[in-house]
């Protein structure tokens, strides 16, 4: 992944790991890379990686096993999915509707398009 120069890298690291958990790329109770491995792999400062991981521990997304490493918390996926559901309409749906209005797509066309996916 290429880090964006416009926001703190430790936040981007935390976001990336959260994403991997939500999509299932990282399973619950699975061990994550050590901060040094992570720093070497992405060519970033180890202290920055450590700060990103520490944030996830604070948020209850990761937990530490002393002397072994860090692991995905058992309830991490639910926790993150709940958080994202809360902001789904504001973050994803509302901007889509604004764009549709701006370019003249009737809302009923959007509803129809969504229906074509079936009742997921």
């Amino acid at each position: 992944m290429v880090f964006d120069d416009r926001s703190p890298i430790y936040l981007q690291i935390a976001e990336q790991i959260k994403n991997d958990i939500v999509t299932g790329a990282l399973a619950e109770d699975e061990q994550v890379m050590s901060t040094n491995q992570y720093a070497a792999f992405y060519r970033i400062n180890p202290a920055t990686a450590a700060k990103g991981f520490a944030q996830l521990v604070d948020d209850g997304v990761l937990y530490k096993k002393r002397g072994i490493g860090m692991f995905v918390a058992p309830n991490a996926r639910d926790l993150l999915r709940t958080g994202r559901r809360d902001s789904f309409f504001a973050d994803v749906v509302d901007p889509m509707i604004r764009e549709a209005k701006a370019i003249g797509i009737p809302l009923k066309d959007i509803v129809q398009h969504i229906r074509s996916y079936g009742e997921a």
Binding site: N36, A39, A40, R43, N45, P46
Partner: peptide, 13 residues
């Protein structure tokens, strides 16, 4: 240069 950056981070760790 990339090799330098990798070696620097590895040895610094």
């Amino acid at each position: 240069r990339n090799l330098f950056y990798d070696m620097l981070l590895a040895d610094y760790a």
